[in-house]
């Protein structure tokens, strides 16, 4: 019984939260890695792109809620998500036209583009704060749990409850659909293939008649979809706050680099590596160990390796280890 209790506690507090967080990070990292692969720079505005997409979705959600359109047990935000994606895609295409294209034509050094993306980050951050403010916004509605901890306890007779939150399940399902669509697109469609060709060898791709502007535009649209989805899922799971999204930049970049910049598969793996390490290292293991270990060995303290505020330190440490021992990342990305 104790082993089962420990397992349930582990699933409830470590496994499922990390799984959901990992899916959110993976989606974010996919966006970063795509931009890196096609446009060849690290986009520092990505966190704020996510914030913008989420904000647009929240605004549409509020509109739907006011009119009374909903999805029953599912959050209304899912219905609003396509509108959020559309708004973000428009914004990114506009940014590309107004800002990035100039430097692309000039063939500016990647680091210049990084600085430019810093400027874009400022502007997007300002726009988001200007429109929706700086406060915490909780926009999740519908049913909160699929199985609440109490129901689970009553069903199984265990001491520990396993709460399956609607948002976690939605995160996993949506992320799976998004990733499946992305890989289908990249591997099966003509546009997707031309994108991969462009990423592998720009000159050769240009020679074979691929239109670079089209590839870039499609990339931005996909990035908008990924970033908005990642942002909305994260916001549903936790809450929306402009500053938090900016801070997500570090774990997202860590995920993309750990996986190998430019490698979509790597971004997904990296997202889960970062999420699981963050959660396992900052979780207080007292409860789980209390069930597993015999009485005299039971720990007195919280058995928390690091306090939760050090979660950045965890992504950072993994990042440094990967950079030192395998700079191209787990999946052999493009960077040297």
């Amino acid at each position: 019984m104790d082993i089962l209790n420990a397992l349930v506690a582990f699933l409830n507090f470590v496994f499922f939260p990390a799984l959901a967080y990992g899916a959110q990070l993976s989606l974010g990292a996919l966006g970063v890695t795509l931009i890196y692969g096609i446009l060849r720079f690290s986009n520092f505005a990505h966190g704020d792109t996510m914030a913008f997409g989420t904000m647009a979705t929240i605004l549409v959600t509020w509109l739907f809620q006011a009119v009374g359109i909903g999805l029953g047990p599912l959050p209304t935000a899912l219905l609003a998500l396509p509108f959020g994606i559309a708004a973000t895609a428009l914004l990114l295409l506009f940014t590309d036209r107004a800002v990035y294209r100039f430097y692309r034509v000039q063939k500016a050094k990647p680091v210049i583009l990084v600085i430019v993306s810093m400027g874009v980050m400022f502007v997007m951050n300002g726009v988001v704060r200007f429109i929706i403010g700086v406060n915490d916004i909780n926009f999740s509605d519908g049913q909160r749990f699929i199985i609440s901890a109490r129901d689970f306890r009553e069903m199984t007779g265990l001491d520990e409850g396993l709460a399956i939150r609607t948002t976690s399940l939605i995160t996993l399902v949506t992320a799976a659909i998004a990733v499946a669509l992305l890989f289908w697109f990249l591997n099966k469609t003509r546009t997707g293939k031309s994108m991969r060709a462009f990423s592998d060898n720009e000159d050769l791709a240009l020679l074979s008649g691929i239109n670079p502007e089209r590839v870039v535009a499609v990339t931005w649209i996909i990035v908008a979809a990924l970033a908005t989805t990642a942002g909305v899922l994260y916001g549903l799971d936790k809450s929306f706050k402009a500053f938090t999204y900016f801070q997500l930049l570090l774990p997202i970049f860590a995920a993309a680099i750990v996986g190998g910049l430019g490698s979509p598969l790597g971004a997904i793996a990296g997202g889960f590596v970062i999420a699981f390490s963050e959660v396992t290292i900052t979780y207080a293991w007292k409860k789980v160990l209390g069930y597993v270990l015999p009485e005299p060995l039971e720990p007195d303290g919280l058995v928390q390796l690091l306090s939760t505020d050090y979660k950045f330190a965890v992504s950072f440490a993994i990042l440094i280890v990967v950079l030192l021992f395998r700079p191209t990342g787990l999946f052999r990305g493009q960077s040297v």
């Binding site: 720079f41 690290s42 520092f44 990647p110 680091v111 990084v114 801070q247 930049l249 570090l250 970049f253 860590a254 680099i257 505020d309 050090y310 950045f312 330190a313 992504s315 950072f316 990042l319 440094i320 950079l323 030192l324 700079p327 960077s335 040297v336």
Partner: peptide, 24 residues
């Protein structure tokens, strides 16, 4: 010692990270 000599973007990410850790 750790991040110099790698790509310029990596130094950027590494310094971004160390700043957050110092504040933490």
């Amino acid at each position: 010692k750790t991040a110099l000599g790698l790509r310029s973007d990596y130094l950027a990410i590494a310094t971004l990270g160390i700043a957050e850790i110092v504040i933490a």
